[in-house]
């Protein structure tokens, strides 16, 4: 599962060092509603960083700011020395920030078509070269298709590579989205609820895939998830949001014991049952997931 790491250098840009992702005092407001209120955290290179919080806490807003879909009213996001705040989404993507969506957003066509879309910023062929079928465009397409196939196999999608995505089951489509993000050769991968709606088996496979991506490619991963079991197992660091504010942060163990977190996220009153127990958190979140669907 790690062979993608060895061939990684062939296509990626020459400087592949993963810089720190720093979020500093980011505020986002929607018509008076404060979605994010001076939120700060940083993602160490090559780490898995989870952003958690109850529904409406601002997790998805946070992702939308990181990927440039929303503009921060105040505050900055830096990837290494580069400031991301204010850049349009496609520029941020080209700098090495890839993301998936909470509800799957794939385009029509085959798995290969979707993965090749992920190669967009890494490829050059324009309208003229493609229309005239120039050798440069053909070669480029061929080369990147090979790389896309490698990534597909890395995520166990090799067998469905040429199939239309509309024919694939939910869990597989979710994995296609992750593969598409990986096709961008990102330095930071943002995963928005990668296991939502999956069964236990699919969750396990996705968790393994996430670890393999981190270990194999050495990239940073930011994770929004409701599945506490997954977070406790995978995350190096956790940031907890509630009503747009960062209420806690630290290692999973530290966060688990933080009284503010227990109160806000796991529910006040029955903290005796819930604190420190990933399973119960898991169940609670399964309920939340159902509510959302």
């Amino acid at each position: 599962m790690t062979h993608a790491a060895t061939t990684h250098k062939t296509d990626a840009e020459p400087d592949f060092t993963v810089p720190e992702l720093a979020v500093r005092a980011v505020t986002v407001r929607f018509a008076g509603l404060v979605a994010l209120d001076a939120v700060s955290f940083s993602v160490a290179p090559g780490s898995i960083h989870a952003v958690i919080g109850p529904n409406g806490a601002g997790k998805s807003t946070c992702f939308n700011v990181l990927s440039g879909v929303y503009r921060a009213e105040r505050g900055t996001v830096h990837l290494g020395d580069r400031e991301l705040t204010g850049l349009p989404p496609h520029r941020i993507a080209a700098l090495g920030v890839a993301r998936t969506f909470q509800n799957i957003v794939l385009t029509q066509g085959t798995v290969a078509d979707n993965l090749m879309l992920g190669r967009h910023a890494l490829t050059r062929a324009g309208f003229t070269a493609t229309a005239l079928h120039l050798p440069s465009a053909v070669r480029e397409q061929h080369r990147h298709r090979e790389r896309a196939r490698e990534i597909a196999e890395f995520l166990d999608l090799g067998a469905v590579f040429d199939q239309p995505v509309t024919l694939l089951p939910y869990g597989v489509r979710k994995r296609v989205e992750m593969a598409r993000a990986l096709c961008m050769e990102p330095k930071v991968l943002l995963l928005d609820e990668p296991v939502a709606g999956m069964n236990a088996d699919e969750r396990l496979r996705t968790a393994e895939a996430i670890t393999a991506v981190r270990d194999g490619l050495g990239i940073s991963i930011v994770l929004v998830e409701h599945d506490m079991g997954l977070i406790m197992r995978l995350a190096d660091e956790v940031t907890v949001l509630d009503f747009g504010r960062r209420i806690a942060g630290g290692t999973p163990d530290e966060v688990r014991q933080d009284p503010a977190v227990v109160r806000a996220y796991l529910g006040a009153g029955d903290d005796g049952d819930n604190s420190g127990n990933g399973r119960n958190g898991d169940n609670g979140d399964a309920r939340e997931n159902e509510e959302r669907q």
């Binding site: 990927s67 440039g68 879909v69 349009p88 989404p89 496609h90 993507a93 080209a94 890839a98 993301r99 969506f101 957003v105 794939l106 385009t107 029509q108 066509g109 078509d113 090749m116 879309l117 992920g118 967009h120 910023a121 598409r180 961008m184």
Partner: peptide, 18 residues
């Protein structure tokens, strides 16, 4: 592929670097 992505979701297309 980029044009098809724009049709299916402009946000997703932009985030993919289009």
């Amino acid at each position: 592929r980029a044009l098809g992505a724009v049709r299916d979701s402009e946000i997703a297309a932009a985030v993919m670097g289009v």
